[in-house]
């Protein structure tokens, strides 16, 4: 593992993403990606009494599923990096309390999953053989914590985004035949002063573009090197903005760039 350029880490023995799993809620199940999820839920509660409990159950089942699919005993997993959107990362800490694996709570808001994978990959270069990475979010619990009650009769502006209900988990392994994590480029915080809480795509896009361009300069690659460039959570507006910013810096990412959020619903 060594640092190249300004911000990028290059792995000597790139960790393999051994197995992954996903569980999503009813709205995601109607979206264009539906057939790729391992499990879809019929309602937001999943038999629990609160949305927070439901979210904990989702991440619990997603991690159980990935462990089962990988065929690795949970005792052989050295640590877990997981987080979610709620205060004190309660969904993941309650969801994973019975898993008996050393736990690193991670908070990176929309970037939590990639942050978990990055830290997990670094762990495989030092002490860990297998690392579990997971994250969850729940539309209802996020609205409750950050915005307004669901029953409140307010209007959502057209730029507002919809939090995914679901969880994703992955197991990284020191040995394996790929797909590999070969480089990571942790991004800086870039705040362009967007104050509209209903336009998160516009708030986040500059940071995404900055990280992406830093990655290109650090690795000496151009956008065309990649089959696909994917951002997590920018939405339709943020995606367009990211393309425009990259273009203004002389990078054309239009042909192979996509955003998870704009493909979810």
């Amino acid at each position: 593992m060594k640092k190249i350029g300004k911000q990028t880490i290059k792995f000597d023995t790139p960790p393999t993403i051994l197995e992954c799993s996903s569980i999503v809620g009813p709205k995601e199940a109607q979206g264009p990606l539906a057939k790729y999820f391992d499990q879809t839920l019929e309602d937001e509660f999943w038999g629990e009494k609160s949305w927070e409990k439901a979210e904990s159950k989702i991440i619990k089942e997603a991690t159980n599923m990935v462990i089962a699919k990988s065929g690795i005993s949970s005792q052989d997993i050295d640590c877990v990096f997981a987080g979610d959107l709620l205060n004190q990362c309660i969904s993941s800490s309650f969801g994973l309390r019975e898993i008996n694996i050393p736990f690193f709570g991670v908070f990176g808001a929309c970037s939590t999953f990639v942050e978990s994978l990055s830290l997990g990959a670094i762990a495989t270069e030092s002490f860990a053989k297998h690392v579990l990475c997971a994250t969850s979010s729940h539309f209802c619990s996020a609205e409750k914590q950050f915005r307004f009650p669901l029953e409140l009769g307010n209007q959502r502006p057209p730029s507002s985004q919809w939090t995914v209900t679901g969880s994703g988990a992955a197991i990284l392994s020191k040995d394996g035949n790929g797909p590999y994590i070969t480089h990571i480029t942790p991004g800086k915080i870039v705040d362009m002063g967007i104050k509209d809480g209903n336009n998160m795509g516009a708030a986040m896009a500059p940071a995404f573009s900055d990280t992406l361009i830093t990655h290109f300069t650090d690795t000496g690659r151009s956008p065309s090197y990649y089959d696909a460039i994917i951002s997590g959570d920018l939405g339709h507006i943020g995606k367009d903005i990211a393309i425009d910013i990259a273009k203004s810096k002389g990078y054309n990412i239009k042909s192979n760039y996509n955003d998870c959020r704009s493909s979810y619903f």
């Binding site: 209007q155 502006p157 057209p158 730029s159 362009m192 002063g193 967007i194 336009n199 516009a202 500059p206 507006i237 367009d240 903005i241 425009d244």
Partner: peptide, 13 residues
């Protein structure tokens, strides 16, 4: 400049 650009880019109600 970015705020002006975003205002133009975002759909209005």
């Amino acid at each position: 400049g970015y705020q002006d650009y975003v205002d133009k880019k975002s759909p209005n109600s």
